[in-house]
Structures are given as C-alpha cells and as structure tokens.
C-alpha cells in the first residue's frame, strides 16, 4: 500500500509534464489576417530632397503586423549606395508622451495623458546587405558578423552602420515607441547593395496594425530635418498613423483626418514654442469625439491623476 502512495504522485507529475507544450505565444500579440509580419519591400530608390515639399512627396507609407509568435518581425528593403551620405528616416505611429503630473515642475502642454494603445515601435538597423544574416521576407536577422583575429580568436561584431541620432540627446541605442528613428549612412559605396531592417519592437495594442512612414534620401538626416523647418523630429514625416477602417489589413489606407493637426501640436509642445498646446488640442478632441467609439490620439483624463502642468 505504501508503494502505491509513492508511485501515484510521481505518475501524476509525469503526466502533467507530458502535457506541457510551452511556447509563450500567449504573451505576444496575435497575427493579423492579411497583414504580413515579415515583409520585404525590395529595392527602393534614394530620393533627392531639395525642398520641404520633397519630403512629403517621397515618403513611403506602409503597415506591418505582429508575427503571432515570439519570432521577431519587421520590414526590410535594399537600396544602392550613391557614393555619398544616405539618410534613413522611419516614423512609426503615432506619438507617445508621459503625462505631466507634478504640480511644482509641471509642463502644462503635457498635462493631458497620451493614448498609449495606438503607439508602435520600429527599431532601425542598416548596413551593407552582404553582412545581413536574415532572409528578407522570411526571417529577420542582424548585421552581426563573426570576426576572427590572426590568433584565431572570434570576436562577434556588428556591421550595423546605423547609429540612431536625436537632436536633443546622445546618439546610439533606439528611440522609444511612437518616436522616429533616423540615421546617416555616410560614404556609401556607389552601386553596392545596402539593406535596411526595421524590426518590429511593438505593435499598437488597439489594432496590432503598425503603420509607419519611411523616407530614404540623399544627404544627411540633420540637413533634411533643418530643411523641413519643423520644431521636432515627429513632424518631419507627418500623418503616418493610418485609419484601419479606411482599408483592410495589407492595404495602405488613409491617415486619420486630424493626424496632421495632432502632430503639429505635439511638436510645438515638445519644442516649447508656446503655440498649439497639446493639452488644449487634447481637450478639444475630448469635447469633439466619443473616444469610446472613435480613435483618439489623447488618453482618458478621468483615469489619471487630476493635476498636472
């Protein structure tokens, strides 16, 4: 009888283990039917930007979804080196900010909360296509290569040439959700294939359809930023947030009609120009829309602390 008491619990434990098929998929967003999670755009032309209007005219708009698994998704494309500097600029939807709550050191422009459910994040890497170890359109990869010195010791090094810049901070790393990432590839070799990988770090929680705007242009990103005259990077590529109701997944729809206005308010507030306060814009949006039924760029003031600014 004592023997049975030992065997039974062990058997139950083994049965439970056999039924365990853990992948962790449930932790990740489900895939969106009709919207590929790993896309290859092929070769894109490098635009020549001479005026601010050229920027808008040369923006490529796209949409990417989650893989539905722990596998990393994203978008790749190639371009031919020009012999000079090439700017890669990517702006994922929409714009994210942290609400200002402090009554002492507050920022009134950001007193209204963000809608955190409509923001996505793409991380950019770029370099010579020959160093990319992914399979475009099939599996994302990296630019990590295996360097062996003359003693035979292996050093894993990154051939990623894209150092993310930011006008108001140090270079390197990746920008947070919703915020544009851009970098210069300097002295590109004429006619040689370069590859850009946009890795999907996060898709928007509300619809899992991550829209983005992409600019590939000759010259430095800083020069293009200056040319546009915008107060903040978020507004170089405008209206990248596409209305999912305007087109089925996999087709490029139209941006929300108030997207441009929203971004202008955001940029003006980041740059503290004293105009187009984001908080005022959000208040107006709250008055004009039923955010339970329609998409709102701003969050719900009632769910946050009452103070701010």
């Amino acid at each position: 009888m004592r023997h049975v008491r030992t065997v039974v619990p062990v058997g139950l434990l083994l049965m439970a283990s056999a039924g365990c098929d853990y992948t962790g998929d449930w932790l990740f967003a489900g895939s969106v039917e009709g919207l590929d999670a790993i896309q290859d755009l092929g070769e894109l032309p490098v635009a020549v930007i001479e005026t601010a209007e050229d920027v808008a005219a040369n923006v490529y708009r796209g949409e990417v979804g989650p893989t539905g698994t722990p596998e990393v998704g994203g978008v790749t494309f190639t371009f031919k080196g020009t012999g000079g500097t090439v700017c890669v600029w990517v702006d994922p939807e929409a714009a994210y900010w942290v609400q200002s709550l402090s009554p002492i050191y507050g920022n009134a422009d950001f007193a209204y909360p963000d809608n955190p459910f409509d923001d996505g994040d793409l991380d950019v890497e770029a370099g010579l296509a020959v160093f990319y170890n992914g399979s475009p359109g099939e599996a994302m990869g990296t630019f990590q290569v295996r360097y062996e010195d003359s003693l035979g010791n292996v050093v894993p090094i990154s051939a990623n040439e894209c150092t993310i810049s930011y006008s108001d901070g140090p270079s390197g790393g990746h920008m947070g959700r919703g915020f544009p990432e851009y970098c210069d590839l300097s002295n590109t070799q004429p006619g040689v294939n370069y590859l850009v990988a946009l890795e999907t770090f996060a898709t928007p929680i509300d619809d899992d359809r991550l829209a983005y705007g992409l600019l590939l242009a000759e010259g430095s990103c800083q020069d293009i930023f200056t040319l546009t005259g915008q107060p903040n990077e978020e507004c170089v590529i405008g209206s990248e947030t596409l209305d999912p109701n305007s087109a089925p997944p996999g087709e490029i729809g139209e941006p929300y009609t108030d997207n441009a206005d929203f971004e202008l308010s955001y940029c003006a507030s980041v740059a503290a120009t004293g105009e187009n306060s984001l908080a005022a814009w959000c208040n107006a949006e709250s008055d004009d829309k039923d955010c339970n039924e329609e998409h709102c760029f701003c969050g719900n003031l009632e769910t946050t602390a009452p103070t701010g600014g």
């Binding site: 360097y147 010195d149 003359s150 003693l151 050093v155 090094i157 040439e161 002295n187």
Partner: peptide
Amino acid sequence: ASVDANVLAYPHPEMGPIIDPDVPGD
C-alpha cells in the same frame, strides 16, 4: 593579436574590418 608595421605610417596593432569608412578598424 599582432602588431603590423605596414598598415599605417607607424607600427600599429592589427585591426578588424572597417565598418564605417570614417572610423578605423577596431
């Protein structure tokens, strides 16, 4: 790993690949 007398105008350690044309090899 080694010292190379010919890569620059003065003896210098061997370098890895040049990734960015503006930056010498590590």
